[in-house]
Amino acid sequence: MTTIYGLKNCDTCKKATKWLDRFNVAYTFVDYRDNKPSPETLLEWAGKAGGFAAMINKSSTTWRQLPDSRKSPESDAEWKLLLREYPQLIKRPLVITDDGTLSQGFSDNGFKARFNIA
């Protein structure tokens, strides 16, 4: 089963779940504001995403409002602390399929390729 991590009020997450519904792809949705990912999960995601910095939505209001001192974590521990405090900084949706593959974001063509739909 595919797991979609995001925010229930995020327009991009809504588009992604509507797409999955339309193509009958089974999924579970997890709002990571209500169910904050564990530090171990964040570390695993960062490994699959290409690092913590690659997971960050730098165009978000939350990111822009952070003090500059918080925008340059120098260790995994600082990244994990930042993302536990502000899970909305994670690019969304974050999609994990049964085989453990992780992707972020939504596009029609991207999801068609990801879920092998012609």
Rank of each mutant, 00 (worst) to 15 (best):
S60V: 06
P87V: 14
R70Y: 07
T28E: 08
R92L: 04
F52A: 06
V30Y: 03
K80E: 15
A46R: 01
Q88E: 14
D76K: 01
R84I: 12
N24H: 11
K58L: 11
K48E: 12
D76T: 03
P39C: 08
F23S: 01
Q88Y: 05
A77G: 06
D31I: 09
S69T: 13
Y86R: 01
F29L: 09
P39Y: 03
Y32M: 10
R33K: 11
R70G: 01
R64Q: 06
L20R: 00
R22N: 08
S72G: 02
I90F: 09
K18M: 08
L89Q: 04
T41P: 03
I56T: 05
W63I: 05
E74C: 07
F23V: 04
L42N: 00
T61S: 04
P39V: 08
A54C: 14
W19G: 10
L43K: 10
L89W: 03
W45T: 07
T41C: 10
E85H: 01
L43Y: 13
A53P: 14
G47A: 08
G51R: 09
G50A: 04
T61H: 00
T28R: 12
A54S: 14
Q65V: 05
D76L: 02
W63S: 05
S60K: 02
E74K: 11
D76A: 02
K36V: 10
W79M: 07
N24A: 12
P37L: 15
R92G: 06
D21C: 01
G50L: 07
E78K: 12
L82G: 06
T62K: 08
A26P: 09
K36T: 13
W19E: 02
N57Y: 13
K48H: 13
D68G: 15
K18A: 09
E74A: 13
R64D: 05
A26C: 11
A77H: 07
A26F: 07
S72T: 08
E85K: 04
I56K: 00
P73T: 05
A26K: 14
E78I: 10
E44G: 09
M55N: 00
I56R: 00
P93D: 03
A77N: 00
I56H: 08
W79Q: 08
K18N: 11
R84M: 12
L83A: 02
T62R: 07
N24Y: 04
